[in-house]
């Protein structure tokens, strides 16, 4: 199982990886991108099983990444891991095609709850 983490913060990418292990996904092959543009290139090349993306990033935001992917016909499962968890943001994420939105700060339990329906 391959998971791409897109976040402009190196420490947050590290915390997401740590939380994935704690949530039971220690076997996942994890790759990283520092912004949406870098993630778009990586997704096209690597075809991951899941994308975990921050919302607010330089170059290309998470929602711009998701819209660009769907416009290209790319159906990769996509979830947000973001500090912004308001109902409006969740609705915007869902309407763009995101499967879930995990709000920061998060726990291994909240990761498991979001990822299990997607990855099993």
């Amino acid at each position: 199982m391959r998971i791409l983490i897109a976040d402009d913060s190196r420490v947050m990418r590290q915390i997401v990886k740590r939380t994935l292990r704690q949530a039971g996904y220690a076997d996942a092959e994890v790759s990283e991108a520092e912004n949406g543009q870098e993630a778009l290139t990586a997704i096209t090349a690597e075809a991951p099983d899941l994308v975990l993306s921050d919302w607010n990033m330089p170059e290309m935001t998470g929602i711009e990444l998701l819209v660009a992917l769907r416009a290209k016909g790319h159906a990769v499962p996509f979830g947000f891991v973001t500090s912004e968890g308001s109902p409006e943001m969740r609705a915007k994420a869902e309407s763009a095609g995101a499967l879930f939105l995990v709000a920061k700060p998060f726990t291994p339990d909240s990761f498991r709850e979001a990822l299990e329906p997607v990855l099993g």
Binding site: D8, S9, N56, S83, E84, G85, S86, E88, A103, P105
Partner: peptide, 20 residues
């Protein structure tokens, strides 16, 4: 700071955007 601000943003009227 980003996470604190994101959570504060959720308590404020929308729509709004968060800076880096």
């Amino acid at each position: 700071a980003n996470i604190v601000a994101g959570n504060i943003k959720s308590l404020l009227p929308e729509p709004s955007q968060l800076s880096l």
